[in-house]
């Protein structure tokens, strides 16, 4: 009777996976292109304030960052807000040198367009921020950006 019935049964046929690498490669390239490696290790706690009127920071290559906040390692460095330049803590007096070095690292044509992004913890007191701003003024880095998250400001 069942002359034409095959032994194989009704199992679904295997899915062709030969295009899987292509799909994965596509994703891979997407992430490779968009990825930005984190350059510094944060040594201060970062809880940015929120604001509504924010602008995007353009030309990331022309931005240098200054981090200010309470140290992550409380046992060793206390809770007073500290300044972090590149990978280490610094004093206010070190800011002009930092600015000069950042400027040195850029093209001559771009040097006047360097923006300094101040990433400051929201609980920091303005005293240290004011000091840094004064140093930036003296060093001639006039374009600054107060880094904030986009969101509803409280109060």
């Amino acid at each position: 009777m069942s002359k034409f019935k095959t032994k194989k049964g009704k199992g679904s046929p295997a899915i062709n996976t030969s295009s899987l690498p292509d799909i994965i490669f596509m994703l891979l390239f997407f992430f490779m292109v968009t990825t930005v490696m984190r350059e510094v290790t944060l040594r201060v706690k970062m809880k940015l304030p929120q604001a509504t009127e924010v602008q995007k920071l353009e030309k990331k290559s022309l931005v240098s960052y200054i981090y200010i906040g309470p140290p992550t390692n409380v046992a060793k460095f206390g809770t007073e807000s500290r300044i972090q330049l590149n990978d280490q803590f610094a004093r206010v007096e070190d800011v002009p040198e930092f600015v000069a070095r950042e400027r040195e690292a850029r093209n001559e044509a771009d040097r006047n367009f360097i923006t300094t992004s101040l990433k400051v913890n929201k609980d920091t007191k303005m005293g240290v921020v004011t000091d840094v701003k004064q140093e930036l003024r003296k060093a001639g880095a006039f374009r600054i950006n107060y880094s904030t998250l986009k969101g509803k400001a409280k109060k």
């Binding site: 992430f31 968009t34 990825t35 930005v36 490696m37 984190r38 604001a51 009127e53 924010v54 602008q55 995007k56 920071l57 990331k60 931005v63 923006t115 992004s117 701003k133 930036l136 003024r137 003296k138 001639g140 880095a141 006039f142 374009r143 600054i144 950006n145 107060y146 880094s147 904030t148 998250l149 986009k150």
Partner: peptide, 17 residues
Amino acid sequence: TTTMDVDTGITRRLPPP
């Protein structure tokens, strides 16, 4: 390793000393 955050903030110009 990827971080997709866009930096946003309030941009101001400091006055010359």
